[in-house]
Amino acid sequence: MRAAFAVELLKLRRSRVMLATTLTVLLAPALLASAFASAAGQPGADPVTVKARAMLPGTGWEGYVSALAQVFATAGLVGMGFGVAWCFGREYADRTIVSLYASATPRTAIAAAKLVLLTLWAVSIAVVLGPTAVLIGLATGLGPPDADAVAALSRIVVLAMLTGLLALIVAIFASVGRGYLVAFGGLIGLVVAAQVAVLAGIGAWFPLSSPALWAMADPALGSVSGAQLALVPIASSAVALSTVAWWRRAPLD
């Protein structure tokens, strides 16, 4: 397991794909949320301003943090899912998977190392996301965040961690589909499923949508309990175990 962990860590550190994905997940949602919040605070009735006002509960930090929760709920899953798809699909795409057979390091160890490292990656993004969002808020002239904004940002940090766990589901798509394409298709399917669950009124019980509903804390969307949130790690752990089992048995044909 140590060798698998060391090798996978080296590959992640050297990967330009993962660097670009990390920066995108960290910066793009916050910048987009800032743009939305800024538009909502503008006078006038142009379409973007009207739409932003309708989406956000207010302006300033309240509007910015609400926009960030909404944007990250989807963009975070897409971005982190992209990273997971790359990590699990790349050996199939570039055929280096052949080198992982007939090896002293079992493929289960490789898959487990990938999952552990991707979880740590997601946690790192979540931890850095809070300060990054604050810096962007300060840079755009929102001033120091108040206590409500800090509480809402803390929820977004937890949302990012839970989203990272949900993104691990993409690993099984990349593994069974042996590459990126099925993984990206599966990722789109996850995003659509989350939206459908919310529209159907079962979002709080659906692991793919419950973290976003909890982070947005919008009474109109209903509340999410701790038990409902606990389904997220349970679901992602089940998929992670399935992925490892797949790597143990999957032949190359």
């Binding site: 060798a3 080296l10 330009r16 080198s99």
Partner: peptide, 16 residues
């Protein structure tokens, strides 16, 4: 994404 030396180090570690 790895250099020649890094690839060989990775192969060595994975081979035990």
């Amino acid at each position: 994404e790895l250099t020649v030396a890094e690839n060989l180090w990775a192969a060595a570690r994975l081979h035990g």
